[in-house]
């Protein structure tokens, strides 16, 4: 996926200092540096997101037929059709991404008659894992810290590349707590009762982003969008300019995209990230009252499988 890495700067992103802010401040900060950005870059972002992470796909395929699962922060919904024998509910904070996810799952459901409104998603290459016919899924708009799912009602949940966008540790732990509250108790017989969480790692020694152990963990990471990639110029203009003020803080820094001579034909959007150091994700699971079942590292990301406590990992076959 060269396209993705090309969009990210090759050198270090500007560091931001996130002190333990009041929750209102954190919410406002994320509105500017996460929610607003994804609304603005949704079609472009979506066109770069079609390949499932192997660890996520493996987790989804381990679920049994008829299982009901959540994808919290589902973005364009690329995981909703990975396992056609489960019913997936996708949620995201971004209405623009959920609209794309919906047209995408509708495309799968009505393969022969793509909708005119789905044109923005067409730039994406055909999703290989989701090319099979009907997908049993649904999508809705919701905040990861105010989820509308009934307690203990679903079999499993995935949350991929989401929690690292939350700007305080209590908020990240609360997000995990809410995921855990939605899933049933883990049994011994199947892979149900589990929550899969994946976040960006601080330890990215093999990537060209230049981040590694001991570095700054709270960063603004630029997303560069050329004019030609802004598929709805009129809409973008309206939406983008009022937010410019909010995004300026990041733009003033020596963002590589600007330094390398991008002109006005490019827009740079700064997204907030908390890069997880080794072991930190497991700590957050425990702080959220969960138990760590297993975990690992996959190409610049930490992932963990969690269950509701008390620990059930000992009863799980290895």
């Amino acid at each position: 996926m060269a396209s993705t890495s090309a969009l990210l700067s090759s050198s270090a992103a500007p560091a931001v200092t996130r002190l333990a802010a009041a929750d209102d401040d954190a919410e406002a900060y994320e509105r500017a540096h996460v929610h607003g950005v994804y609304e603005a870059i949704a079609p472009h972002f979506s066109s770069t997101r079609y390949k499932p992470w192997p660890a996520v796909a493996e987790f989804l395929h381990a679920q049994t037929s008829g299982a009901v699962g959540l994808d919290v922060g589902c973005g364009n919904g690329k995981y909703l059709g990975v396992n056609p024998d489960v019913f997936m509910l996708g949620s995201d904070r971004s209405p623009a991404l959920i609209a794309l996810a919906r047209s995408r799952t509708q495309q799968q459901e009505q393969e022969s008659q793509p909708e005119p409104g789905a044109s923005s998603a067409k730039a994406a290459p055909p999703p290989p894992a989701a090319a099979a016919a009907a997908t049993a899924s649904d999508v809705l708009v919701a905040d990861g810290l105010s989820l509308p799912f009934r307690d203990r009602s679903v079999d499993f949940a995935v949350c991929v590349a989401v929690i690292h966008h939350m700007s305080t540790r209590p908020r990240r732990q609360e997000a995990i707590r809410q995921l855990l509250s939605c899933v049933r108790a883990a049994g011994n017989a199947d892979a149900g009762g589990h929550v899969f969480v994946m976040v960006w790692a601080l330890e990215q020694g093999n990537s060209r982003r230049g981040w590694d152990e001991g570095g700054e963990q709270d960063l603004l990471v630029p997303w560069v969008m050329k004019k030609s990639q802004q598929q709805q110029p009129k809409k973008q203009k309206q939406k983008q300019h009022p937010k410019k003020g909010l995004l300026q803080e990041g733009d003033k820094s020596d963002a590589p995209a600007e330094a390398s001579g991008h002109t006005d034909s490019s827009s740079v959007f700064q997204r907030y990230y908390h890069l997880y150091r080794k072991g930190e994700l497991e700590e957050d699971v425990l702080a959220a009252g969960g138990a760590v079942v297993t975990g690992g590292y996959e190409r610049d990301n930490w992932w963990v499988v969690a269950a509701n406590g008390p620990p059930s990992s000992s009863s799980r076959p290895t």
Partner: peptide, 19 residues
């Protein structure tokens, strides 16, 4: 009403999860 292909196994198995 959507026209969605039926997955009988999924349906039978999902029912115990339904309130």
């Amino acid at each position: 009403y959507d026209d969605l292909e039926i997955n009988p196994q999924l349906l039978v198995n999902v029912l115990p999860r339904v309130d």
